[in-house]
Every structure is written in structure tokens, then in C-alpha cells.
Design a protein around this nucleic acid. Sequence first.
RNA 1: GCGAGAGUGGCGGAACUGGUAGACGCGCUGGAUUUAGGAUCCAGUCCCUCACGGGGUGGGGGUUCAAGUCCCCCCUUUCGCACCA
Length: 830
Amino acid sequence: MQKTEGKTLRYDFKEIERRWQETWEKNGLYRAVEKPDGEKFYMLVMFAYPSGDIHMGHFRNYIVGDAVARYNMMLGKDILHPFGWDAFGLPAERAAIQRKLHPQDWTYNNIKVSRETLQKVGVSFDWSREVISCSPDYYKWTQWMFIQLFRKGLAYRKSGLVNWCPEDKTVLANEQVVDGKCERCHTPVVKRELTQWYFKITEYADRLIDDLDTLPNWPDNVKTMQKEWIGRSHGAEIDFIIKDTGEKLPIFTTRPDTIYGVTFMAIAPESPLIDRLNLDGDYKKQVNEYRKKAQMRSEIDRVSATGEKDGVFTGKYAINPYNGDEIQLWVADYVLAGYGTGAVMAVPAHDSRDFLFAKKYDIPIKVVIHPDHVTALDLSTMDDAYTEYGVMVNSDQFNGLEGEEAIKEVTDFAERKGFGRHKINYKLRDWLISRQRYWGAPIPIIHCPKCGPVAVLESELPVLLPKTDNFEPKGRSPLADVPEFMRTKCPNCGGEAERDPDTMDTFVCSSWYFLRYIDPKNDCAPFDKKKVKAWMPIDLYVGGITHATGHLIYFRFFQKFLKDIGWVDDDEPATVLFNHGMVMDSKGEVMSKSKGNVVSPISLMEERGVDMSRLGMFFTAPTEREVLWSDEVIVGIEKFILNRFFPMAERFRDSKPDLKRYFNQSDFDDYEWNMYIKLNQTIKRVSEDITRLQFNTVIAALMELSRDFDSNKIKNDHLNDGLILKSIQMIAPLAPHLAEEMWLKCNQNGSVFTSHWPEYDPNAVQFDMVKIALQVNGRLRGEIEVSRDSSQEDVLAIARKHNRVKAHIEDKKIIKEIYIKNRLVNIVAK
RNA sequence: GCGAGAGUGGCGGAACUGGUAGACGCGCUGGAUUUAGGAUCCAGUCCCUCACGGGGUGGGGGUUCAAGUCCCCCCUUUCGCACCA
């Protein structure tokens, strides 16, 4: 509490915050309409994982969204600003195991605590639409989504090598493996051969890339990251032939123009093709040993061994279909099993990796590309491959062709001959969604010995997660050990059958939550199409950059799928994306529990008040930049609010000003007119800065305005009161409790948030007198004040007479005089 | 290694389409008030110089009357990707 001895005013934030939060709740200020009729604004922040504590990062995220929501509310739009919980997932389960609690109890308890904290922050969430992803009435529809995908053949089961985390004892999606380690617990990931459920996101790869171009208001870095993650590359698939077995060995290459330079072939150790080669004695032994060794090597080993390549010769040969050359067939672990066909044609002269490999094992190198028609490559002096485009040489009828054209010709040739084709490849893999864990949405599939995997009938949803205490991870799904869950009848033939024991990746739950907010209580459908049509797309989505290649791809994928099956209208879920910066401690380190440097917004808010904390966070840095948090940033804000801004309410004269009225210069004296201009300039600046989410300069502008404002010098009551009321309106999105309190103190009816955002008077945003910089040869020599829009002649005449200017142009010849209206004069003299 | 962003006072950071660099705040210095501390108010605060003036937005070049802003090279740093053939 602030001491304000001698002053009648006291800013009792605890009382004020409590009172306004109650009032807002009572009046349902943030209750969204079912269907907007006028202009709408769907403000979305990423829903939260209920870990039990709300940290500074959350706080920052939500107050940014809140400010935008409140601003748009004041612009008269219908607002949808919901919140919910990403409540399934591994950490809940682990925490629950450690604390000997059930994940459900742990999760719901955390939600309760976190919700109460958030409610204290005064964020304008419509809590009546809260969504909890682990609640059966939500995951019922997550399962429904699965079934729709399954019906379209976009959810399927396949066996393959998958990422397995030995610590968490579950499979992981590619996105959850970072540097060969489990994203969550940092345990090195191993590969296992398992049959798992996948979503065919690759089917949408092109649209996921191409539609990024329809999103001008997404940050470029996110779009670039997504493009690279999806990794589309154009090239050719060429069928080589295994010499002995005659088997076709298709390979993918982006450089078919180097086809005559192929001197060996490399196959990934995991490739099943190797088993079909009928290797002879010693070779067989060596290859098998190598394959075993490769499999033992962890992912990190293989990744960190950059540069160093090894492999083993199979003793077999393949035939290049272009020239019939016999080339050696190697097994090498620098070839990725999962990309292309798991085998590559190696062109040492024109690929750095192949070059290293060929040097190491003394494999021939053959130059088939020259940089241009006059420059030739000399193999004896090459210490790396030449990988640029160039002119084809030593390539029979293709000699002389260049770059793109060469690639096209070579591929067309293969197509005509039937041993190759144009081909597009992606780095993106199908999305592995099965998890061998308890705390997730059960996969709504029944395995029937006769009918195979059959979807649960929609009328039977949800497939309830059985309440069991037996959820400790042991390498297979805990649900498999719950017989009453597993045992069921086939929906098709009625015979004995078993449920799928796996649960879904939580990213599935978070891929459609934004649609459920629009109709959160719907029992009959995931949502009402008409309501969704009215509210979508999301007008602003605010979150951290960490989800660039995970969630933000998945939710776009879901949107597109739902569009394809007629449930939504838009191709893209969110038109504007904004990534706020991270919040670090004062030393620039990431806040984490293990480091013990976590600053909780709760204690801060209790000590300084919610609005001071909000303003402090807003003021310290622009939204997209990272913040090194220290409580000191509050100091300046506190002085500003307590000593200057809040006391403005005391200067209110209750003159019932018309806030829509514009004034003329003749209504005022000089000080008043200048204040009027300053006010309108501030309105303009603040409106623009809020639109681009730059809140630090919003506060700076308000500081300037209230610094210049001296009520004693203002005789016009309407100006005095209008300036105060508009200032309150302008700070309202950032400091809602404060604004409401001042609004009330100024005898205004209703909430400041139902008042109309001020509009600036376009005839009063420039001062009548402007300062003109005087330069000689680009150097500043003085400054004069003239009336706005003065003519070049007049200004130059004054400028030439200016003492310091004169001193610098005397004895010199004036070559050029430049006048930028209302800004500067530059006299060029020699 | 590849790609993208960033580099401005002691600190956080301003600066719209090239046009007075350092808004706003912290900190610091001096003054007023106060028994004192705190708080508040006023003034000052990029660097060198008594001043005139000069230098200055990571470094070096360039374009321009004019560059933090545009172009080229380099350094540092953050983030992403990392054998994707």
C-alpha cells in the first residue's frame, strides 16, 4: 500500500481489484454472444498445461491477449476471448505417480488453483466457455475427430521404426525428439520397431506449405520454419537395377543431371532391401555386423558424428539405367532410412557427403558437371565436391545441358524409357499419434479378429478412460492391463474383440480446441457449424514461438481436414499470429524450477497490484522481445500511476463533456489548443501502437500526455474533463481495474469497456508551430521555429540569416538548398 | 555447416515510407523540502572540450544533400534446421 500522506487520494488496489472483478463477473462483461451479428473479434491465447503454477511467461501471454481483447471491445466488436486447459499428458501422470495421486485428481486440482490465479489477473476470459481436454465431454469429440480421419483413410496403422523414450516408456513423434533426446526428459531416444497409429498429415503437405502464402500476418520466421520442416523438394525417382537379383532399386535425387557421375550406391542399414540381396559369406557377416552396430548407435551419436562417414561394401553391384555402368553397392549409416527410398545414388564429385565417403574408401570419382562452358573442374585439385549447378559433361547425349533444364531433360528421358519419373519428396513424416500411456484420450478403435480394426460407433462415444490405479508405465499401455476396458464386442460382427489400448498424443487434443470454445457445451456435435462460421477465423492468436513446427502445423492440418469434410469454411484457422518473447530472470537465464529462479506473478501482484504488474510487464520491452524480468521495472510505473495518472481523477470537474465533439482553435487559448493537439496526437499514437501490439510506447505516450497536462491552466471544463476521460479510456486495455475505478470516480455510468474508444480529431494532430532543423552540409547548426507548412522561400530566408548557419556558409558557394517541409533545411556549400 | 533475426547511453528501450539519434522509464549527479531516513518536487545526464567545435547507433567500405534506417564485406549473438541425397 502506498503512503499518500497529506493527499486525499489513496490507491487501494486490493479493494479496487476485488470489487471490479466481482462487478465484471456479476455483469457478465466478458460473456461472449452465441453468434456475433456485427463485427467480431476472436482473440485466442494458447491454452495452458495445468502444471499448477502460473509463471511470468503465462502472465505475459495472457495480458497481451487481454489488452487486445479489451481494445477491440471498446471498438464495439463482439469479442470471443476464451480459455481452457491442455489437461492430458505425460507430466500429469509422472507428477501423479510421484505424489501417489491419481492423474485426474492432480490435474483437476491444478486447474482449480491455476484458474483462481488467472482470475486474479483480471484477464477478460469468458470462463463460461472453459474447455478441459481431459474431460469426457471434450475427448468424446477428440475421439470423434479420430474416427472421421479413420474413415477417410487418414488415420492408419503401420509397423515401422519409431522413436522410443526409455525413460517415459512411450513412443514419441518426430517433433518431440530434440537433438536425439526426448523433448520432455532429455533421455536419449532409441529406435524400436512397433505397430502404431499415424495421421496422414503428409497428404496435406502441399497445402500446408502453399497456404502459408495466404497468411501475410504470420511472422516470417514461423512460416520459414514450417516450410523447412515440411521440406518439400523436387527431383526425380530413378530405378537402378540390382545386378544379381534383377530387383529394382528406386532412388530419389534432386540432381538427376549428375546421374553419369554415380560411382556407388548407398543403402541405409535399416533398409529391408539388404535382406534380399543374398549376400555372400564374408560380405554377409560384415554387413550384418555393421547393421547391428548402426542400430546400437543412438540417434545423437549418428547426428553428432558430422563429417565422419562410414559404411561397408556388400560385394554386390547395381546398374545405372542411363549408361549400364556397374556400380558398387554399399551400406552406410549416413543414409536415412525414412527419407526417399532409404537408398541414394552417390555422386562423389558433386555431393560433399559422397565425396568424403569415396575418399575414405577409395571409390572412383567422376566429374560430370563443369561450372560453365569455359571452366573445367580438375579432379586432382578438388578437396570438396562441386555442388552448384553447371554444365553437363561426360554424359553422352546430355552434354552441354545446364541447371534446371538439364534436370528436366534427364528426367523426361527416364520417364520416356520407363525407368524414372519426376517426383516430389517431403521431410515431413506422417504424424505418429499413439502413446503407450494412461493419461490421454483412448483411441476409439476395436480390434476384431475377423474384421480387423473397426471404429467405435459414434453413438458409443466417448470411450471412457477407465479409472484405474494401475497406470505406471511399464513399456506397454497401462490400459492393456484393464480387462474390463479391453474386452468388448466388435461393432461390425458382434464377435469378441479388444479395444485399442493406446491413447492419443495430446497434440491431437490441442488441434481443435479453438473450435470447441465456440460451442463448448454441445452434446450432439463437436460444434455448431453456423456458430463456427460466424466466429472463425481467429483474428489474433498469441503464443510462444516454441510451437512453430508442432502445434501450429497440427492445428492448421485439422482445420484443413475439417474443411474438406464440410465442418468449417476457412482454409486457415488464424489470420494473424503473434509470438511474444520469453520471460527470463534478471541474468538472462530461463526460469525453471530446478534453477530456483522462477518469479511468480502472484507475489508480485499481491505486493504491487495487478495493474502495476501488468503495466510493468508491458512497459519493460516490446511484446515480441524477450524480457529479463526484475521487479525494478515497476518503480517508474508506480510513480507514474500513483503520483500523476490516478490523481488526474481528482481534477475532474464533472462538466458532462461530449466525448465525440471536436473543437476549433477559437474555442481555446494557446495552452489549451496545444493540449488539445497533444491529446489527439496521443490518441492516434496509442491506437496505432495497440494495433501493432507495441504496448511500451503506449505507456510512454500516456506518460507524456499526463506530464504536459496541467489542469490549473485549463479554463475550458470540457477540454479538461474530456482529456481526463480519454486518458482513462486509453489506459483501460492495459490497466483495467485502475481505469474502471477512475471512470467511476469521474461519475461515468457503466463500465469503461462499454464506452467507445476515443477517436482523434484529424484537424488537431499537428502543432501550428514546427521546429525546423538547420543543417549545413548535413551537419546540424541550429534550429528555428516557424509556422507549419511555411514556404521554402520563407524558411530558407530565415535559415540563411541564422547566426550559426551564416558562419558556416560565409566565404562559400551555395551549391544546393534542400527543404523538407516541417522538418529541416540543408544548405550544401563549398 | 545452412537459414532467419538482432547488435543504439551505465541499464530497459524510442526513432513512421532515409530527414534534428537517444522519446519514455530506471539509475546516477546537484538542488529544494525533511530532525533523520523514506517519499516528493525542480534541474542535469551519449562521449571528448572551459568554449568554438569535434566524435558517435558492433567493425570496415559504398550510395545520397542527408544513413540507426538502403547496398557490399566482416565480427558478435539469439533462434531454428542440422547427413533430407
